[in-house]
Design a protein around this nucleic acid. Sequence first.
DNA 1: CCGAAGGAGTTGACGCGTCAACTCTAGGCA
DNA 2: TGCCTAGAGTTGACGCGTCAACTCCTTCGG
Lengths: 163, 163
Amino acid sequence: MIPVMAETLEPEEWELWDTWMRAQRLLVRELDRGLQRDSGISKAEFSVLVTLWQAPGREMRVGELSESLDWEKSRVSHQLTRMENRGFVERTQSGAAGRRTGIGLTAKGRRVVQSAILGHAGNIRRYFLDSLTPEQTAAIRAWSEQMIDSVEPNCGEAGDGAA
Amino acid sequence: MIPVMAETLEPEEWELWDTWMRAQRLLVRELDRGLQRDSGISKAEFSVLVTLWQAPGREMRVGELSESLDWEKSRVSHQLTRMENRGFVERTQSGAAGRRTGIGLTAKGRRVVQSAILGHAGNIRRYFLDSLTPEQTAAIRAWSEQMIDSVEPNCGEAGDGAA
DNA sequence: CCGAAGGAGTTGACGCGTCAACTCTAGGCA
DNA sequence: TGCCTAGAGTTGACGCGTCAACTCCTTCGG
């Protein structure tokens, strides 16, 4: 509710911002649709499947998934519930007793993730990588690194794991 | 379910992709939080408020909002329902008879949007514009335009209206 | 005037994402 | 042994977003 700094953007600045946000939305939308069309899964499902697939033993705990994906634990939990209902993953009791604490891929999950990786990689190449000139690549890389450093000055790990 | 093209990405390609997506997520997250913190509204609410605010007469119909924001009509409708509940907008019967068909800002909506614009513009400048070198600006502009053209080969209008 | 067609807007169901509150288990310590 | 606290995981409520189905007005033809 409190105005902070009386700044405004020049029309050309605003246009740059708008154009860029718009391009991103379109790119993300295309990739999401590709995943849905080719493999029948969402981006969130893809991220989880790939992360589990890459895990040693193809078995992880919620906390590990959460850290690896940089998602909140509750988000992971909700996502796993949906994916368990769809039959992509299963919660197993890995610990000695009681709680179901391990997360593993089902046969269906393994089957889907392998085809999805190929299709998705192709789409990233078609829609993104192929459209970049070397200068654009360098600029985007540099800007991205600056941005990440400025927001997360510390450490260096944790990627989205997929998308 | 059908694998499409057996392509994969080189590690450096994948890393570029991952870094870029990550940077974007962080940027968007910061801006969303800024809007929430400074003005108590979400990005979606901001977009609607700004669009209505810029409209001649500060009154629009759902279809106009939908086109101007490039959102589905049902998305607009759901959003307006939430914002009506929060007291930011109101549905008025502008037409002669029957259906409530006009959308207008309330006094509260007008008050909030003005402060939000200033704060948000400042944040866009701080987090995005200030961090760009001229080469990066050019590269991002060029890439964005390519992207938009490739996905929407036709026309030229319709911006997000805000976010 | 009546009825069909079509467009505008809404609604419901569901997936995604966050926050806050809750439950359960494991481990420490008297 | 028995309590008790810390952390892992879950749940519920809610906002955002899409798709498909629905309602209601308008308009055009007879």
